[in-house]
Design a protein around this nucleic acid. Structure first.
Lengths: 343, 343
DNA sequence: ACCGGCCCTGAATGCGCTTTCAGTAAGCGC
DNA sequence: GCGCTTACTGAAAGCGCATTCAGGGCCGGT
């Protein structure tokens, strides 16, 4: 038998010798005489029928695929959060569409637009916003009509002007706590490995760290801050740059664990020991840092739970009022990569 | 102005005072008088119009979202491959839908089914198949009609009976090469940390390793093989089990780097040093293993390229003939986690 | 000035499905 | 046995868009 390009409901109905309407009802579990239902189901089975999701969505049936947009799926930070999202989605019998923007704002807008077009019931934005008015307006222009059309949106991390449900990691206070912990270890000369300034996460973490240092009378000079991409290689490069500048810091704070990992590699390659010659700490507590040698000191975020909460927010009604889940995580975890100064 | 739930093309056409057809053509860049086009574009902009992807797909326009199904996005192995897929997809102006089955065969089928329903132009299966006849039949039953309907499918890793384009990592020969390398280091007593037997990848890697050992007259007893999940904790558990059994192996081969990482952690927790007390090697060469201490010896796979190739296969015509990209990677990379025996 | 031909526009059709609406047969009370 | 309710089934409308088919300007050619 030459297979047809697409088996349609009409084919099934014809094979079962019933009407389109009956076939549809039988397949969707509505009230139909058992005998007819069996005929329809058998026909569908035999023809390997798969309903056309587009036609179905167009005809009004809501569909069950939510969209998740993150910056980079290869980054363990996002992977862990996405894992949490998927767990909850799975429990709710939802399919998850994971998109990766690779930190290209344009692409982020494009993905939102396409998810809108797909009429996804919910869109999750994982990862901080950009502090860029033009981008914010564009994103808002996409999201507004989506929300008005009944779409649900939730974000993890701070987006300045988005009036949507948010899960907010304790970036500022966490960084401040880390500053205190590091000060307590006796450090007075610090350096920071930063990510792109335009990210709200960078602003929050850097601000929290610097302000806390300032409270203790320790200044952070502009030259003590090196900016690089939020990647392992970005951390490696930033650390190398710092070394090249002849930094005298006894402790380096990387704004993410991934950067910290790169920094440790750079230090190792330069023959410096961690924490013997220099202490290193990160932020996020991605799973792998426990298995490094030395294990990385960091500010812990409950990554999986961040994702779970975001999905839950998107799944429950908010009555048009923005909800915020604050103070998620932010505990300092001191491991082997930081030591008392001079010890 | 009270926003409508959905702005449709008809709204735009009305606002621009043109026909539906003209509005459609203007939006899709077909020949339309500049003046009319501008009117349409302006109206669309003002109304924040987004075409309904379902209606568009239904009306025949092919859409540009390919599906990628992997076992676990939080696993760096899959993340790296997915990264490659996305790179090529991005170059071709395609959107990528990443799904994670969490190694649930049922869910894998469900995702394929839903991608079929979405009429995705291509489906990529990343991750080895299960050696389970029932599952294979079910998957084939989903894929066959999809392929007949013009869908494109490509897989990374071996699927016993799937007649689709494949990218095949050099699992068997790679494992054999690792066996030789380890033998060359003087090891004679081995243990293997294995994953679920039902995975073809496990069969290939385990088989390649064991056979090569056998060639050298070294036997691998059933008790030298411990099975666990393909996760960090799975590796930790398997290694602990091995230790509890009082293994005398001088070298442990984990079937994946992720398991090897867990194994190293277990060893560390038991006060054993790597490679001093015992050598450890993995498989995959995921990016992080370079940054471990000691760096992990492993069999390198060009993960990103695996993904790129799979996407390329799915994007190019195969004239109905199955193509296979063989011998991808498989180079042994000896780093610090393996040492000469007795040294 | 007239006609053929070209290009652009608009009306209409259909993609595959869900759902309303009307219709028919069966079941019940009287 | 007749009329009415109940329970399914089938015909048909329409979801939003791309596209075909005709029709109507406008051009150049003669």
């Amino acid at each position: 038998m030459q297979p047809r390009a697409h088996v349609t409901l009409e084919d099934v109905a014809r094979a079962a010798d019933v009407s389109l309407a009956t076939a549809s009802r039988a397949l969707n579990g509505m009230r139909v005489t058992p005998q007819l239902r069996d005929r329809v189901l058998a026909a569908a089975e035999k023809l390997a029928y798969t309903p056309n999701a587009h036609a179905r969505a167009l005809a009004g049936a809501s569909h069950r695929t939510v969209g998740v947009i993150c910056h980079d799926v290869t980054d363990p930070y996002f992977a862990a959060i996405a894992g949490g999202v998927m767990r909850v989605a799975g429990d709710n019998d939802l399919l998850v569409m994971l998109a990766s923007t690779f930190r290209d704002p344009e692409r982020e807008i494009a993905y939102v637009s396409m998810l809108r077009a797909e009429r996804a019931p919910a869109i999750l934005l994982i990862g901080s916003g950009f502090e860029d008015a033009r981008w914010e307006r564009a994103l808002e222009a996409e999201l507004k009509p989506y929300l008005d059309g009944g779409g649900r949106v939730a974000v993890v991390s701070r987006h300045r002007s988005l009036k949507v449900d948010s899960v907010l990691p304790e970036n500022r206070a966490g960084a401040a706590a880390m500053a205190r912990a590091l000060l307590d270890l006796g450090h007075r000369r610090f350096a920071v490995l930063s990510g792109p300034r335009a990210l709200t996460t960078v602003a929050d973490r850097l601000g929290g760290f610097r302000d806390e240092l300032a409270k203790a009378g320790v200044a952070l000079a502009p030259t003590d801050i090196v900016e690089g991409p939020f990647t392992r290689d970005g951390g490696y490069g930033a650390m190398s740059e710092l070394l090249a500048r002849g930094s005298t810091a006894t402790c380096v704070f990387a704004l993410t664990d991934v950067m910290a990992i790169g920094a440790c590699a750079a230090l190792r390659d330069h023959g410096l020991s961690v924490p013997g010659d220099i202490s290193v700490s990160g932020f996020d507590d991605i799973p792998i840092v426990r298995d490094l040698t030395p294990a990385l000191s960091t500010v812990a975020l409950p990554l999986q739970r961040l994702g779970e909460k975001a999905m839950e927010l998107a799944l429950t009604e908010n009555n048009g009022r923005r909800r915020r889940l604050l103070r998620m995580g932010g505990e300092v975890v001191l491991r082997g990569s930081t030591a008392k100064v001079g010890s």
